[in-house]
Computed example of a mutant assay.
Amino acid sequence: MTDCLLFDVDGTLVDTNFLHTVAWHRAFLRFDLVVPNWRIHRAIGMGGDQLVPALVGEKTEADIGDKIRQAWADEYQPLIEQVRPFEGAHRLLAEAASNDVVVVLASSGPPDHVEHYIDLLDARDIAAAWTTSEDVSETKPAPELLEVALGKVSVERASVVGDSVWDCDAASRSGLPSVGTLTGGTSRAELIEHGAVSVYEHLDQLRADLNDLPYVRLDETA
């Protein structure tokens, strides 16, 4: 039985959520849209295609959604050098792989961001596959990203690791169990409410429980 862990990247393995919040806040301000940082933070984990209409409405999305996303990219670019992996991230990925678990990095980030994070995590020889924004037309909480990620590997069982309710929602919609982390700033109660089977404060705590994580057979999710 070949197992696979689908890892969210931003906010789960690398410390980006608050930097993304700053970048989105500044991007909205470019268009005189004042969105409180707390609301932006609670939307982090969605892809930009979902986040913009969720925060400023469908009309604004239709009128200037692409311009806002470009402004976010411009604002985030100088911040990306501040990104660091969370303590224990490399150890978690390496031990999972050493236990014959197939590691897939399921991200909808821009390709250059994902490549940068993979290097920060020293994960090129660990991850069997990864995804980027170029792989999907609809991001989390839609299930497409996880389905595309699973399509890149040959496995029989899978589980999802993420830091946001959007990760948990996408897992549920895919018929997969999810495990939450507190690394992105979402509460334990919210993650459990959205379907997380268990929640970990530190990645080393998650690593210690690798043999006890929940999996579901993929032939049961069809």
Rank of each mutant, 00 (worst) to 15 (best):
A62L: 12
R69I: 14
R69L: 15
L51M: 14
D49Y: 09
V56R: 02
L51H: 01
A43L: 07
L55A: 07
R69V: 12
H41R: 09
D49T: 11
T60F: 06
E61T: 03
R42P: 00
H41W: 02
L51E: 04
V52K: 05
G57N: 10
R39C: 03
R42H: 12
A62H: 12
K59H: 14
T60E: 12
R69F: 09
R42F: 08
G57H: 06
R69C: 12
L51P: 04
I40L: 03
E61Q: 15
P53D: 09
G57T: 06
H41I: 01
D63M: 12
I64Q: 11
D63N: 10
E61F: 13
A54L: 04
L55Y: 11
I44Y: 05
A62Y: 04
R39A: 14
E58D: 14
D66Q: 13
L55P: 00
A62S: 14
R42S: 13
R39H: 11
V52Q: 05
M46Y: 03
G48M: 02
D63H: 11
Q50D: 11
I64S: 04
D63Y: 07
P53A: 09
R39N: 08
H41V: 02
H41S: 12
I68A: 06
M46C: 08
R39S: 10
L51Q: 06
D49C: 01
D66C: 04
D63V: 13
V52M: 07
T60W: 11
I44T: 11
G65K: 06
R69T: 10
A62C: 05
H41P: 00
H41Y: 01
A54P: 00
G57W: 03
I40T: 01
I44P: 03
V56F: 05
V52G: 03
G47A: 07
R42G: 04
A62I: 03
G65A: 04
Q50F: 08
V56Y: 02
G65C: 05
P53H: 09
I64R: 13
D63P: 00
I40R: 03
E61H: 14
I64C: 12
L51G: 02
G45A: 08
G47M: 02
V56C: 11
Q50L: 06
A54S: 15
